[in-house]
Amino acid sequence: MEIEAETHPLDKYLRTDRIPHIWCPGCGLGTVLNCFLHALEESDIDLKNLAIVSGIGCTGRVAGYLNVDSYHTTHGRAIPFATGLKLANPKLKVVVFSGDGDLFAIGGNHFIHAARRNIDMTVICVNNYNYGMTGGQLGPTTPLEAKTTTSPYGNVEHPFNLCHVAAASGAVYVARWTALHVRRLKESMKEALNKKGFTFIEVIASCPTTYGRRNKMPTGLDTMRYYKEKSVIKHGIDPSEADIEIGGDIIVGKFVDIEKPTFDEILKKLEEKIK
């Protein structure tokens, strides 16, 4: 028999007085957050020095559920806020948790520049192909021809390949997983958390309510089964070859893992030089 429980061993990472979260049944966001909690549990991160920064949108709500210093900022501005936070207190481990629209449409400029500067932070982008919070509009990652409320006849825009953008902008760690790859995602999160520099993980996740229903995947389970069928792991592949198309393979894996001095390391050296 299963055992009925009241609490979860990872509850210590959560503001349990705010659980259940607002995310819909079948949404992949809870899974991604869950993997993150497991990653925290298995790393040596000092929670006192962990700060989570989110923007606006469904993923933006992550900050409010984690029982650490957490900042729910304005739409698109999580990364520059996090930049200030990290530079002002270098002891902090800063993690930006936000969505594809927040990080790559309204906040796209900040993303590429923070990656270019190699600010020491981990950015986790939950990519659900649309703006969920506002009811399912097209976003910068909506695949060509996909239906959304603002592309009712099918999307006519080419989507961003987020990992390609991240790698081209200078991120030192770039990986992509789906919400089904929970173990690999958790391992990737641990790697990113323990690596200095601008680290980026894209997690493709289900949004049954506003995206799936319009694109022949009415439940989260349908989407997760689709990931199982279509995902192909290709570590080390050039991310430019990992575009996402409707019906095509979803290429996942760790694409980039390089070393490069961070903004604060270079700044520290400069300060010593001019002293």
């Binding site: 299963e2 055992i3 009925e4 009241e6 049944p25 899974t31 439940t219 989260g220 389970l221």
Partner: peptide
């Protein structure tokens, strides 16, 4: 493994059952 379930938190997505 022993399975623990916090029944009232479940939203019935079916992920655990299916996979």
């Amino acid at each position: 493994g022993k399975v623990y379930i916090i029944k009232d938190r479940c939203k019935g997505c079916g992920f655990c059952i299916d996979f």
